[in-house]
Design a protein around this nucleic acid. Sequence first.
DNA 1: CTTGACTCTTACCTTACGTCATAGCATAGC
DNA 2: GCTATGCTATGACGTAAGGTAAGAGTCAAG
Lengths: 237, 237
Amino acid sequence: MHLYDQLGLLKPSVRTESRYRRYGEAELLRLQQILFYKVLDFPLKEIGLILDDPDFDLIKALEGHKELLTIKRDHLTTLLNTIDNTVNHLKNKTMSNYEELYEGMPKEQAEAYRNEAIDKWGEDVVVRSEKALLEMPKLDIEQLKTDQKDITQKLISLVNENPESEAVQEQIARHYANIRSFWGVTDPTDLKIETYKGLADLYVADERYTTVEGKTNPAFAAFMHKAMMYFADSKLK
Amino acid sequence: MHLYDQLGLLKPSVRTESRYRRYGEAELLRLQQILFYKVLDFPLKEIGLILDDPDFDLIKALEGHKELLTIKRDHLTTLLNTIDNTVNHLKNKTMSNYEELYEGMPKEQAEAYRNEAIDKWGEDVVVRSEKALLEMPKLDIEQLKTDQKDITQKLISLVNENPESEAVQEQIARHYANIRSFWGVTDPTDLKIETYKGLADLYVADERYTTVEGKTNPAFAAFMHKAMMYFADSKLK
DNA sequence: CTTGACTCTTACCTTACGTCATAGCATAGC
DNA sequence: GCTATGCTATGACGTAAGGTAAGAGTCAAG
């Protein structure tokens, strides 16, 4: 109340001689409105405008505000995805006898994929897909794994280039396509760009990703992150 | 950087003789991690704990954090619903020749329902439902409308009771059931508790809701809001 | 009249920075 | 070597929306 008074947002109708604040019915009604807009996360300044300026375009403000809140919510959704990925990756369980299947890509990455697929389609579907994958011509799988290694090699050699340069982005596009192919076997849906961005976050979250041929290489992690994010964002446009 | 240095979160590895901050590779790596957790909306203090305390239970923290973010996201979803309702209600359009159909319930409420139904099922479905409703035995519709008035009367007479008291909640349950019946005709889905909570917000948002028999009555709006929220929340448990 | 519960004002704390002023330092060009 | 320009350091203050504490005044009840 003190604050609202000071901001001129809600003044008491009467000040007693001992300077106590007394509010009347009109002030209560105004407080109701203030609290309503406050619940909607409007800043107090704007609430003042809404209530005091009769020409204020309320609908426009509400719709603009809605957009902001939508962005915030989508952002939270992305964060939740990232946390899920991170937790899966830290828990490090499952993946009992499938190591061979997923060999060739970072273990945590494979796990993250697998767990997300299980979340969406149920374990049985994923298991069935994996069996199908195991029965797939060896050559095709090997091709994917080999491509993966090749792409990683090329990216390592480009680590001093600008992550947004054409040369890097070309390899990132292959990286994305490769992961998508792999994904497409275990998951009937397409790989979402957001999931790919979540993977980009994983690259800087744990030093295990940054290990290149036995040596810790944080620069590579940062590089991959930037390159993947740039790729994903330009795909989204 | 100054801030992180001051908080002891990230200290430069070297201070030149002119007190310039110099960071080494290890510090860069640490910064990566800091930024990662910062993206996940962790407060800096907690990031410090995560990075400095080897016994920190990261998974627990992540999952606790996930719950917080989930709550935030759900909250935003509710806000977005409320804003939608409010905007529909302000726009005051449509409802051209259906006044008779929706007569007996607050006009804005009917509009909000109708617009939400259109959003979810498309205008044609709603129009079809409305036609069906118009062909429905008049008595049934009248019964709903009469109930609505009766409930409102009873609630007005209870306005000085505790909104959480049994007597009030009994009427609120009827209120909810009545709205649900009406809703059930125009919308194939059930009325969501969240939507009901959004309606509760509408009760305090506009003085037209607070008008009882021609007199402004903000107390009734506040009372309805509390009672509806309490009802919805105990339903959710 | 005293006691306990409010309320008043003022001031400081919170988060994660951003901005500003002032001063020192670094480097490129001359 | 000197200077113009730009980067950095430090400290102070501001932000949003209050929360908390201190110290003083006020109200109603016993």
